[in-house]
Every structure is written in structure tokens, then in C-alpha cells.
Write a protein that binds this DNA or RNA. Sequence first.
DNA 1: CTAGGGTTAG
Length: 582
Amino acid sequence: MVITSGCCLEKFVMNHLINMYCKCGDLESGITLFSVLPRKNVMSCNILIGGFVQNGDLDSARILFDEMPERNLATWNAMVGGLIQFEFNEEGLCLFGKMHGMGLFPDKFTLGSVLRGCAGSKEVKLGQQIHGYVMKSGIDFDLVVGSSLAHMYMKCGNMSDGEKVFEGMPVHNVIACNTIIAGRAQNGYSEGALDQFNLMKLAGLRPDKITFVSVISTCSELATLGQGQQVHAQAIKSGADASVSVRSSLVSMYSKCGCLEDSLKVFLEPEDDDDDVLWSSMIAAYGFHGHGQEAIKLFEQMEKKGIEPNDVTFLSLLYACSHRGLKERGTELFRLMVDEYKLKPRLEHYNCMVDLLGRAGCLEEAEALIKSMPIKPDSIIWKTLLSACKIHKNTEMARRVAENVLRLDPQDAVPYVLLSNIHASTKGWGDVSEMRKTMRDKNVKKEPGISWLEVKNQVHQFRVGDKSHPKWLEIDEYLKELTSEMRKRGYVPDTNSVLHDMDIEEKEYHLAHHSEKLAIAFALLSTTSGAPIRVMKNMRVCNDCHLAIKFISEITNREIVVRDASRFHHFKHGKCSCGDYW
DNA sequence: CTAGGGTTAG
């Protein structure tokens, strides 16, 4: 009705109508109206560009932008913002450079987009320049500009400047707080993230679903179940628990805290269950607990439901296969990902494949994959192969591979330790001492192993041979008792993975006080019920601890759950759920 | 026209 008499309408009414249609997702009608406009001014073009962008049709937006005879600031803002919104960061930043070169000065709308682009492509230099410009130009330093700046710094890993910007903001709202919480969480400052969460509540700000997503992810990082459950309860109270994003983070949190059943419970809630991330997080949860078959079954269901898997879905699947020794299935899935779903494998996918092949004992195949892949290998993927060499005791390949790790990451202690152990086993003492000298010269240090657990809402932390815990004497005494009982049952300490410059007795003492053994002994002493013991570790469990914990679970008749740097081990009656494949 | 978030190998 309106369209038929379109030509007679006032221009600004027409513009409003076009805007309305575009906003409501009816791009067709917007375009039709635009085409009957007798004279198109900058304003109407801007509106249509905005419409194209909001509906994801960037190509049309680009064409219209290029054809426009004159443009104003809003035109540039719409185009720059649109490109960056759809992660064409470089193109967006390039366009920004162009507009700047033409003497146009950015306003706060431009800056919001450009800072987001800087964050996305880690352009901290440009970000800093913009920061300087904001301070000089007298642009309103409002919530949006402030949050964007803080976000940019933190995304680029520059925590201190991000925090400074946040402190300098005159007021904070929920979004500003969310920026800081996420920034801290993503840079490993988990406690700081939780602090800000508590502070914002004290300040009377109501956490929204985005707050919960970040805070719940933080709890998975810390793997402290009690905290996670509390935050879940708060999310339920606020109604945020119905959001798929919140549920995805809950699935992950429960799985990382060792409660696979709770992950499944959240996953099975009936609403909104056709989300790829939600499904991926459940697949990852199964994989993390060593349930490779269930992960694959879930993927098949996902395909049947027509949910499009993404690259993370496949990463989780490959991971699940590699931890169950499902070599054939994993290889098929990798092919499916590339050939059917046309997803480009990232280095992470190749790493999973190397892990899959290597663990399964196909070391040559794994090495060939690294050499043939179209991406440059990093030190991590060589380290994956190195640990496979170690499992399958292929010292010859280990030497070669360790050299590659050393070349790419000279500060990593793992290859040094491994190489010096190889030299020691062949009595190459000269090589051994040279190796140790290099380590000293380059100041290479082994990352300390840390284990922690929650007892009565308190987190207790242990390091190797750490005597600082108030109950140290009791723990040490109890470990002696346990060890002698273990030996009676046939336990022999596996001293192979210890640095070799100690005698056997020292090695055994060192092994007996690995952080996870301390943590488990403490847990056994401080809990009397038959409840399972949950211990977290920042590194992989060593061979000796894995063996010892099996004995301990039998002797004490307790279920012991250990979260490793890469997966879960459920020890029960002298056996581990990983089937010694880890 | 503008800011923040979920799944992820070793």
C-alpha cells in the first residue's frame, strides 16, 4: 500500500521506512523501496548499507559503498563497522586508514568498531594510537569507548593497560565489568575474574548471561566444583541458565570438575538443543572422560538432527578418538571434516591426528603427517610426537624429534630432560653433563607440577616435596605406610622418568613426594566417608604416580578421580578408567 | 551505525 504511492512521500519518511524494513530482516522490501526513490541521497544509501550489513550481505554493502558519489562519516562508519563485525578485520582497518588519510576524523562510533577490529587481529599498536587520539581529541570517554579500549588491550594480552583503562572509567556498568571479567579469565587470572564478579554484585550490578558465561568458564579453569555449583545456582535464580551459551559453559564446567553426569543433565534440558556449540561441548566432555564411543554416537545424532558441526566439534571428536585408541575412526572423521564439511584443518587438528597416530604406535605415519601438512609445525606438535616416542620407547626417533622441539622452543625443559635420560640410559655421560650445562646456561627450568583439591570449600595446593602444608608430617608418615603396603602388593617405583643426577634412593624419595601423591594422601587423611577423592593437576600424571594411585585405590578401597592436564582418570579397585592408555 | 560471552589439541 505504501509502496504504490512511494514517490509522493517525503524523503525522510521513505528513509525511515527503508530502515524499518532492514531492521526487521525484510531486506527485499527495503531494497524495493530504495529502488523507487527518485533521488538517492547519502542518508538513504547509508541506511541501505546498514541494512546489508545487518543481514550479513557484505558484498552488496561493498558495491553500494563503492558506487556512492559522496559519503559522509556515517557512511564510513557503517562500512568499517560492518566489515569488522563480520571479522573482516584487516579490510575494515584498511578502510579506516583510508578514511583517516582523507582527512575524516573518527568519532566514537568509528572508534568502537576499529578497536574491536584491533582486538580481533591483535593490532595493539594501532589500538595504542587510537587510545592516544581519544585522550587528545576530547572525544567523549564514555562507557563504550572505555570498554572497547580495555577489551582491546586485554585481548592483545596487555593486562596492565586494560586494567588501567578500566580503573580510569568514571562509571562502570554490567558490560564494562563483563569486559574485565572475561579479560582476566582469558589471560589466566581466574581469581581476579571471580573477585570482579563479587565486586559487581556488591555494587548492585545484576550479572547477565554473559557474566555467567565468563564466570562459569573461570570455574572450569580452576576446576573447583563447589564454586561452580554456587555460580550455577545463582544463574538459575537469575534465569540466565536457560541461555544456550550458559548451558554450554556449564556442560564444560561440570565435565572439567569431574561430574560427567551433571554435564549430561544440563545438556539434556529440552530447550534450544540445536546449537552446535552446545553439542560440541558435550562431545568434548565425553572425550575428556575417555568415552570415545559416546562422543562419536553423539556426533552421529548431531548429523541426523541436521546440526552443522564446526571445527571445534571435530577437534573434540579427534581428541576423543585419540584417547581411546580409535585410530581408524579418527582418521575417517578427519577425512569427513575435510572432504564433506570443507573445514580447513588447523594446527590443532593436525596435532590431534599426530597424537592419535603416535599413541597408537604408528610413529612413522605420525612423523610423515607433520612433514606433509600444509602448515608450518610448531614446537607443540613435535612435543606431541616426542611423548609418543617416549611411550613406545623409540629412542632413535626421540633424539631427532627432541632436536626439533629445542630448535623451535629453546626454553622448554621437556626435550632436555628426555634427551639427557636417553644419553644416561646408554651411558653417554659426557652428553648428559653437556645437556645439563646447556640447561643451566639458558636458564631452562622445569615447570613445577602442582596438584590441588577442595576440602570443605577450601582449596589446598601441593608441589613436589613441598613441606609447607600444616599437615606435612602426618602426610609424610601416611605416605610411608602406604608405600610399604604397596610394595608388599608388588609395587616397584618407576624411576625412569626422574632427572638422572640422583641415586636410586633419592629418585624414589622424589617420586614418593610428587604433588599428586601428597594431595591424595592429604585427601585420604582429611575425609573419612567413602566419597570419591577429586584431585587436579596442572601436568600429566607420570607413569609412577599412575601406577601408585591404582594400588592406593585398592588398598584404601576409595575411588580417586585425578584431573590431569589433558584428561580424567577414575581409579577404582586397582584399575584406571583410561585403561592405561593415556 | 557503536562496547562484553559459550565448545578447543599438547
